[in-house]
């Protein structure tokens, strides 16, 4: 590529000569060509480093959860899998992250000797304060999503969209997009995600991912219930 580039510049120089321009100027171009090329490469390489490596790290701030939580440990204690704590209410709505009321039955007093447990009981349980969890899967408020339609009707697994969080022994670092305020889990962690490639459904949860899955499973990008395709199916 660089050779072609040089040739082009040379040709250009010769044309200038033919037009009666000074011979020196042509030599200057040829002499300066090495630097021009070098600077181009430096600029090109540096911005690739900035764009691919530095920017993604700058874009996200690393935030800690109020205290750590062991999903695997709790899974061993409950009978009904994820739905033991992340349950559907009687009216079919989804409860999401458990409220303090669900935890106090067991955690009224400090269980075990971890520091996280102490923080939980002393800072939240005894003060009756809800834990301000950072939710990895939180979508913008204008997005309508029904857990019942996907879990109850389409019989989808929690793992499909949420990954293997249920088997984790500690919570991952919450990476918050400084611009949008949303978790990096929505946008994808890996470089291939940024290139619109992904391996697992759970790797990224943006609008195109909804559409992709719907297209794959149902043959069309519509809601299964309403069979309607349009902004207001999901954006309410």
């Amino acid at each position: 590529m660089s050779t072609a580039d040089d040739n082009e510049r040379e040709v250009h120089g010769q044309e200038t000569d033919a037009d009666g321009g000074g011979h020196d100027s042509g030599t200057t171009v040829r002499e300066g060509g090495g630097f021009v090329l070098l600077f181009f490469i430096i600029g090109f390489a540096a911005s690739l480093v900035v764009g691919w490596l530095i920017f993604p790290n700058l874009l996200y701030s690393q935030k800690k959860q109020p205290f750590d939580f062991n999903h695997a440990l709790h899974m061993g204690e409950v009978d009904n899998g994820c739905e033991s704590c992340h349950f559907f209410r009687e009216d079919g709505t989804y409860s999401g992250v458990p409220k303090l009321a669900q935890c106090v039955a067991c955690h009224e007093d400090v269980q075990g000797d971890t520091q996280d447990e102490t923080i939980f009981v002393e800072k939240y349980v005894s003060k009756k304060r809800e834990v301000p969890w950072r939710v990895y899967s939180r979508q913008p408020d204008c997005v309508f999503f029904s857990h019942a339609a996907h879990v109850k009707m389409a019989k989808m697994d929690c793992v499909t969209c949420h990954g293997h969080i249920g088997e984790s022994t500690s919570l991952p670092v919450y990476e918050e997009n400084r611009l949008t305020g949303y978790s990096r889990d929505i946008e994808g962690h890996h470089l291939e995600n940024l290139l619109c490639l992904k391996k697992n459904t759970a790797d990224r949860m943006k609008m195109d991912d909804c559409a992709e899955c719907h297209l794959e499973k149902t043959g069309r990008k519509t809601s299964v219930q309403t069979e309607k395709d349009g902004c207001f199916v999901c954006h309410k």
């Binding site: 002499e31 300066g32 021009v36 090329l37 181009f40 390489a45 540096a46 911005s47 764009g51």
Partner: peptide
């Protein structure tokens, strides 16, 4: 061989090209 205005222009063009090819 000397560093002139065109070198910096080239740097800019290179940077722009690189950025465009980054996310």
């Amino acid at each position: 061989m000397k560093i002139d205005r065109r070198c910096f222009l080239s740097l800019g063009i290179g940077a722009a090209a690189g950025i465009t090819l980054s996310p």
